[in-house]
Amino acid sequence: MIRGVRGAITVSADQPEEVLQETRRLVLEIARENKIEPDHVASVIISTTTDISSAFPAKAVRTIDEWNFVPVMCTHEMDVPGSMPLCIRVMMHVNTELSQKEIHHVYLNEATKLRPDLTAKSQVSST
């Protein structure tokens, strides 16, 4: 069965090195938390807030060992007033036997504020 695994992270500035580093960190943490191998991934969609334009976050995924064949696409989030700035979001479509409630969605840095309900679940399950 294919499940969606979500995650988000913020960067302190729209700098190419930081965008790529933090995207990589997020993807690897999602994979680690959910025991995801690249061959299990059908596709990855990465969105950024419109204040991030210095680098394609998909490039970070393509540089991870064995992830170079995973289809990855970037897009921008809707520009909603008051939304969290400098945020990178990931939706990973994964072949898994896990149920929806067993999936660990990962929120890092300031993005923990987006889904405190899921962040608390992840912190409880990883301790």
Rank of each mutant, 00 (worst) to 15 (best):
R62M: 12
S54D: 01
D79W: 10
S47H: 12
T96K: 02
M78V: 04
I64E: 07
C87V: 15
D51T: 08
K121F: 10
T49C: 10
A58R: 04
N109T: 04
I103W: 07
A111D: 08
S53G: 15
T112W: 08
Y107F: 15
S83M: 15
K59L: 14
E102K: 13
V94I: 02
P57S: 11
R62I: 03
H105V: 02
I103P: 04
H104N: 15
S122P: 00
A111R: 08
S125Y: 14
T112G: 03
I103C: 05
R115K: 10
H105A: 00
S53D: 11
S83P: 04
M73R: 09
T48Q: 10
I103R: 05
L86P: 02
F56Q: 03
N95W: 07
V72C: 12
A55K: 05
V70K: 03
I45A: 11
T75V: 00
T49H: 08
N95R: 15
I88H: 11
E77F: 10
P85E: 13
S126T: 09
V61T: 10
L86V: 05
L86Y: 09
I64G: 03
Q123M: 09
V124L: 12
S54V: 05
C87H: 01
M84Y: 08
D65F: 06
D51W: 00
L98H: 07
A60F: 07
V94D: 03
M92A: 10
V61W: 03
S47F: 02
V94M: 03
P71V: 06
N95A: 13
E110A: 12
V70G: 06
V44S: 12
P71S: 02
E97L: 15
C87K: 10
H76Y: 13
Q123L: 11
V94Q: 03
M92C: 01
P116H: 03
R89H: 10
A58M: 01
I103S: 07
P71F: 10
T96R: 04
S99A: 08
A120F: 11
D65M: 02
L86N: 11
D51K: 02
H105N: 14
S83C: 13
T119S: 09
T50L: 14
F56G: 01
L114S: 01
P116M: 06
G82E: 11
C87P: 00
E110G: 06
L118D: 01
E110T: 01
V61Q: 09
Q123S: 02
T119H: 12
S122W: 15
V70Y: 07
I64H: 02
E110R: 10
E66Q: 09
D117R: 01
T48F: 04
S126M: 05
